[in-house]
Simulated scan of single mutants.
Amino acid sequence: MTSPPTALPSVPGLDVRVEDHVGWIVLDRPRHKNAFTGEMLRAWAEAYRAFQADDHVRAVVLTGTGDAFCAGADLGDLGQARSPLDSRRLMTEHVHPVARAAEDLAKPLIAAVNGAAVGAGMDMALMCDYRIASDRARFSEGYVRVGLVPGDGGCHYLPRIVGRSRALRLLWTGEFVDADQALAWGLADEICVHDRLRERAGEFAATLASQPPVAVELIKRAVQAGEHADLRTSLDLIASHQAVVLATGDSAEALSAFRDKRPPHYTGA
């Protein structure tokens, strides 16, 4: 039995929708380089949670409009902290819920980086499982250039993606990395001609959405757990996941379709 469609948030600057089995989050403040407001942050986290709860959604794409992916926070909207405690609360209660919701999303999360991803905007892309970069994309952990430390997970994600020394270089300098360099360093997983970016992201998301949903989610969970576990723990976990998957109707359907040489039809059960 699948869950009913979940109500999606609707706020200015954030377009959240479902097309077929793919959830879309589109940052839509092009005049502000898609810098996010506090209202957008709350809806962003809510969208991830809604997609996780909706069995109809099997993959999620995050992208932007205009010539930027995301310039980070709109500091004018979020306001200035009056004390260290205010600053901490601003981060933990308003910014960090997006990272926590992304971590809780067991479905594939794809970033289609259409332009500059700067500061927290770059961190939002790093939270994703797979990054497709436009040939016009650029990445910068620009915090240091305005006297700040990375506030949205950059110090966590970046070393895991590009290695410690390259991460420190990018964090210490705030320099920009173009699409080709991003691909070489693993910041981007593939590069796409700009005008085809959203189409390519949709195609890839649809491919993932066509796979057996339970298996896809448990693969992601196993990889996440494996990043913090020893081999024996990972093997023990995957043995349990395999038992769950084998008990699903989708597992039987996959084998039947393979034997019959026909496309499979998965229900998520």
Rank of each mutant, 00 (worst) to 15 (best):
P159T: 13
A182N: 01
Q181V: 06
E203Y: 04
R200T: 05
A201Q: 06
R200L: 11
E175C: 09
L171Y: 01
A179E: 08
E199L: 14
I161W: 09
G186H: 00
A201W: 01
V193Q: 12
F176Y: 01
Q181T: 13
E175S: 09
A179D: 13
A167M: 03
G174Q: 08
A206V: 06
D189V: 09
V193I: 12
G174R: 08
E190G: 04
L183V: 02
R169L: 05
C155D: 14
D178M: 07
G174E: 13
A167R: 06
G202S: 13
H156G: 07
Y157I: 03
D189R: 05
C155L: 10
R198T: 13
H156N: 02
L187Y: 09
G154D: 02
Q181Y: 01
E175V: 10
E175K: 12
W185V: 04
L171K: 03
D180R: 10
L171N: 04
R160E: 14
L158I: 11
D195Y: 02
V177I: 15
F176C: 08
H156D: 10
E175T: 06
R169S: 09
C192Y: 04
A188P: 01
R160L: 04
G202Q: 03
W185E: 14
Y157W: 08
G186Y: 08
I161P: 06
R196L: 11
A182V: 09
V193L: 14
A205M: 13
G186D: 12
L183Y: 05
S165R: 14
S165D: 15
V162E: 04
V193M: 08
R196V: 05
L170N: 03
G154L: 10
G186F: 07
A205L: 08
F204Q: 10
E190P: 00
A179N: 15
A184D: 04
R160F: 00
V162T: 06
A167I: 00
V177Y: 08
Y157M: 05
E199M: 10
A188E: 06
S165T: 05
V177P: 11
L183R: 12
R200C: 01
F204E: 02
I191F: 02
S165F: 02
L171A: 05
W185Q: 07
H194T: 15
Q181D: 15
V162G: 05
G174F: 05
L171R: 01
L197K: 09
A179W: 00
I191K: 05
C192A: 14
G202V: 09
W185A: 02
E199T: 07
W172D: 12
V162A: 06
G154M: 13
E203I: 14
I161A: 04
E190I: 06
R196P: 00
P159R: 04
S165A: 13
D180W: 00
L197W: 06
L183W: 13
R169M: 08
G202Y: 11
L197C: 15
W172A: 11
D189K: 02
L170W: 01
I161R: 15
A167C: 03
C192L: 02
G202T: 07
G186M: 10
W172M: 12
G202E: 11
R198I: 11
